[in-house]
């Protein structure tokens, strides 16, 4: 039986918009609006979606880097939202994050030694006398080599710098790591190196990843399960194979069909979505995707669909659409 390391229930993250003469809160950006999911120990759950769908906000809320508006975040059976600041800081020893931009997330005035030392000191994760050995070991683990301990970030390439970011996350022996677009800024050949490294580390240390990304190729490679977000909501979630080979939600389908395939003889039917993602300040009623969905009806405008499972879905696969069966059976066709 697999155990749930992280369980998020009804997470809401609203950011206030101040306006008027007195700077009152006039409205909210509903970045994450009632999202629930869990991550099993040792697995990788990916959250995918386009800009503004709330995937990064979800990650930040889990670590309480932004204070969530509402919800429940269970980590190892403990509700993180009940912890005070000091306790939460302690908790981050187990929960680390690797950011997108290795140029911006590492202090340019610190050497690798200082970067790693600081992480270990704050969490008091490693006794002082053992820190240097541990640092050397870490650098070897992430493929940098211990001779690079006293170098500054600018002496590294982008891929190497991301390895420093990974070493920093590993410095406190975490069990859970959030990778927020951690390979997006890298060239493909370097991205592949870092992806392989992340996979190997997961096996070696039994790490659990929450992997936030927009690149579905990367996601397919690294994940066990995938959650697709649109405008602050999870529209589909399930095992990787189900999401990629048996997608049910019209948004997931169009997202998959929009990715260019590196094979010129491959001719795919592309579902081109009209228009842009609506504003999360005043999201569409009912199903949030209805303004762009080729299958939308009045029902979609009025009723919010819940995540549910149908007979043609296996495992933990669920999608939030009123018309899964009807579309599948060909009873409900896309509007021209």
């Amino acid at each position: 039986m697999t155990t749930k390391l992280l369980e998020v229930n009804n997470l809401k993250q609203y950011f206030p918009i101040k306006g008027g003469v007195f700077g009152r809160t006039v409205n909210h950006v509903k970045a994450v609006d009632d999202v629930s999911f869990y991550v099993n120990e040792g697995e990788t759950l990916s959250i995918v979606g386009e800009s503004g769908c709330g995937k990064s906000t979800t990650g930040r809320a889990v670590l309480r880097l932004d204070e969530p508006t509402n919800g429940n975040i269970q980590f190892n059976g403990e509700n993180l939202l009940d912890l005070n600041k000091k306790e939460m800081r302690k908790k981050r020893k187990d929960m680390q994050i690797i950011f997108q931009d290795p140029y911006a997330s590492i202090n340019p005035r610190q050497t690798v030694r200082q970067v790693l030392e600081e992480a270990m000191a704050i969490q008091d994760a490693v006794p002082k006398s053992e820190r240097v050995d541990k640092m050397m070991e870490l650098l070897d683990t992430v493929g940098l080599g211990s001779h690079q301990l006293d170098r500054f970030p600018h002496e590294f390439s982008g891929g190497q710098r991301q390895r420093v970011g990974i070493a920093r996350a590993l410095a406190v022996d975490p069990t859970f790591i959030i990778c927020d677009e951690s390979v997006s800024a890298l060239d493909v050949s370097i991205q592949a190196q870092v992806l392989n490294l992340l996979k190997n580390l997961q096996q070696q240390y039994n790490l659990t990843y929450l992997f936030i990304a927009h690149d579905l190729g990367v996601v397919r490679h690294i994940s066990d399960r995938v959650a697709v977000m649109y405008l602050g909501k999870i529209v589909e979630i399930g095992e990787k194979k189900e999401i990629f080979d048996n997608p049910k939600h019209p948004y997931t389908k169009s997202l998959l069909s929009a990715i260019p395939v590196p094979d010129p003889s491959h001719k795919q039917e592309r579902i081109v979505l009209k228009g842009d993602v609506p504003s999360p300040i005043d999201p569409p009623s009912g199903c949030r995707f209805h303004t762009r969905c080729p299958f939308a009806t009045d029902k979609c405008r009025d009723e919010k669909p819940e995540l549910r499972k149908t007979e043609t879905m296996t495992g933990t696969h669920e999608a939030a659409c009123h018309y899964i069966e009807d579309i599948e059976a060909g009873r409900h066709k896309a509007a021209e």
Binding site: V188, S189, D215, H221, P262
Partner: peptide, 9 residues
């Protein structure tokens, strides 16, 4: 380069 590319399909 082609081998480095993670594929979604």
């Amino acid at each position: 380069l082609m081998n480095s590319l993670p594929r979604h399909d």
